[in-house]
Design a protein around this nucleic acid. Structure first.
Length: 614
DNA sequence: AAAAAAG
């Protein structure tokens, strides 16, 4: 193994004696030995070899410290090396470079993602990024735990992200880092694993993208070993639970990596795989994907995870819940991805139930837990209302709301309203009914074709169809500017889902309204909902409090064990090391509720940060 | 019990 490996390295070195082959040694790695010179870091691909060669990312010094065997599993390339692959014999550079030198020499051909954005933004007068109320950041509470937490930074300038990336940050009009960025970026740059609670809309995507891009740019000298000619070896993997969220992350990541030489590719289901395969063949450093399509690509051996240095799970608690966990485990643990410690893993979500934290710790190594408030926090920005509405009255009630809203149209356009329902069928039927009644509505859910889903989302975003009826597919992560009103036509059973849903409004410092239709079918949510609203300084109707009181005795089983936004590191609970059944009841004394105080109550968040969940 | 994610 060693021998063939050394041979490979030697071959590669000879063929591809690139810049940095000696400068970028990984000092401590034994399995990821220093002599893998072929890979040319993106920032050097079309520049003179520079002296710039910062310390190797700590993430990469890891493998030797762990079990040697598991290390070599991924570190040692297989023996099926074919000339003409790695060294660029066939015109390919490392199999992922590119044909026709398109990217390197033809950098000017890289589509400028900022131009597209400018056009899209013209529909609305204000720009999202400039609308952020940065002053609201100052008092944001933060909780960190873990060993040797790197200190936060206050400006992007303090962090050496590289000039190309800095320029993109300016193009994005980011003036100062958001709280999650201030804390998460130094942690990531220090090579540490991270579990971060931060509401979307608080700059979470950038928080994990910047360190990844920066890390890849100053990359190690690593060759992506050949497996099959068509196999590609991304260095970073970003997973998300829905196709649209993957698209969104991809779009953002493209902006951040513009002219850095770092290539971002997205892969998700429901779309023709051929285009995605072509995109991959043109080269990929960061792969953004939904789990199903990624598994497909892995099984076809079109993607290998052998060289993964960064793994980011967005909406991580969702990715690890019952529906997704097996797929995620397969990808992370049963394919060829380096083990924890040999890669850097970052988990992000607005909510992090303790039992999910426990699952997640399998993927992490000596990680730092971080909980930060969001911009302005939803409390002040989102007005939450709950109305008692029988099932049979829901439609006419919705109609009333929409009529009222119509009067408040902005710039001749009706304000955007996002209506959540429980089922796909219910979504179709409500959409149909709204259209019949003269309300321009469309719908997004898992029974629609991907084309229809994307069209619906675009049409909604642009204001052409100002009403979007959605299932939970749209509950998480989607950044849709200008959503004025979220209606929970059907309430979810899980309070965390409610938190995510209402988070589609009141973003980036703007105000939002969230209305929920509550009836007897939702009694199991009463307690959690009423507590949540209280913490958020919202008016809780007396009837809801009565529901809550009733359900809190009698097994109104709402087994959220805590971990909403502002949650707490489960490692701090004494039960952490005990038998697994303890997690569910231990840790918060508030008895079956979803947790104690504090976390969510943004404006009133202050006092309770460290005591949250106690 | 439903939704999402492969076709």
């Amino acid at each position: 193994m060693r021998t063939s490996w050394a041979d490979l390295a030697a071959n590669s070195a000879a063929e591809n004696a690139g810049p940095g082959s000696s400068a970028n040694n990984v000092g401590t790695g034994s399995t990821l030995a220093p002599t893998r010179p072929v890979y040319v870091p993106p920032h050097l691909r079309n520049r003179q070899p520079a002296a710039e060669s910062p310390a190797p990312a700590p993430a990469y010094s890891g493998p030797s410290s762990g079990a040697g065997n598991s290390g070599s599993r991924y570190a040692a390339p297989r023996n099926d090396y074919r000339p003409g692959y790695g060294g660029g014999g066939g015109g390919r550079t490392g199999g992922w470079g590119n044909k026709s030198g398109g990217w390197d020499r033809g950098r000017e051909r890289e589509v400028n993602p900022f131009e597209e954005e400018d056009n899209a933004e013209e529909a609305f007068s204000e720009q999202e990024n400039t609308g952020i109320n940065f002053d609201a950041y100052e008092d944001i509470p933060v909780e960190t735990s873990g060993d040797n937490v790197p200190p936060p930074v206050n400006t992007f300038a303090e962090i050496d992200l590289g000039e190309a990336l800095n320029q993109n940050i300016r193009r994005c009009k980011y003036v100062r880092p958001t709280p999650v960025q201030r804390h998460a970026i130094p942690i990531s740059l220090a090579g540490r694993d991270l579990m971060a609670c931060a509401q979307t809309g608080s700059g979470k995507t950038a928080a994990f993208c910047f360190p990844i891009i920066s890390g890849i740019m100053r990359g190690q000298s690593v060759q992506r070993p050949p497996r099959g000619v068509r196999t590609v070896y991304p260095l970073a993997l970003v997973l998300s639970p829905t196709r649209e969220l993957s698209m969104q992350i991809h779009e953002e990541a493209r902006k951040f990596s513009y002219q850095t030489g770092v290539r971002v590719v997205v892969a998700y289901g429901g779309a023709p795989i051929n285009q995605q395969l072509r995109d991959l063949e043109r080269g990929v450093d960061i792969l953004v994907a939904t789990p199903g399509r990624l598994v497909d690509l892995l099984e076809r051996a079109r993607v290998s995870l052998q060289m993964i240095r960064y793994l980011a799970l967005d909406e991580a608690d969702r990715m690890l819940d019952m529906g997704f966990e097996p797929q995620i485990r397969k990808i992370v643990e049963q394919m060829d991805m380096p083990p924890p410690g040999a890669r850097q893993t970052m988990l992000f979500s607005a909510t992090f139930p303790k039992e999910i934290q426990r699952l997640a710790s399998d993927f992490l190594s000596n990680y730092i837990f971080l909980a930060v408030g969001r911009v302005g926090s939803s409390t002040d920005l989102i007005v939450q209302r709950v109305e008692y509405v029988q099932e049979s009255d829901k439609r006419s009630h919705l109609m009333d709301l929409l009529h009222a809203q119509r009067a408040n149209g902005v710039q001749g356009k009706q304000a955007l309203t996002l209506v959540f329902v429980e089922t796909k069928k219910g979504a179709d039927s409500l959409e149909h009914w709204l259209c019949l009644n003269g309300f321009p509505a469309t719908t997004i859910h898992g029974d629609r074709s991907q084309q229809e889903r994307e069209l619906a989302l675009r049409s909604f975003k642009s204001g052409n169809t100002p009403i979007l009826v959605a299932t939970d597919v749209a509950a998480r992560g989607l950044d849709i500017p200008h959503v004025a009103h979220v209606v929970n036509f059907d309430l979810p059973n899980d309070i965390d889902d409610y938190v995510h849903r209402i988070g589609r409004t009141g973003r980036a410092g703007k105000k939002g309204l969230a209305t929920a239709f509550f009836n007897d079918n939702n009694s199991s949510l009463a307690r959690a909902l009423s507590e949540l609203m209280q913490e958020a300084n919202q008016e809780v109707p007396a009837w809801l409090s009565r529901f809550a009181a009733r359900s809190s005795f009698g097994g109104g089983r709402n087994r959220r064990s805590g971990g909403r936004f502002g949650g707490r590191d489960f490692r701090r609970d004494g039960s952490f090391s005990r038998g697994s059944s303890d997690y569910y009841s231990a840790g918060n004394g508030s008895g079956g509720g979803y947790g104690g105080s504090g976390g969510y109550a943004g404006g009133g968040y202050g006092p309770g940060v460290t005591s949250a969940w106690d």
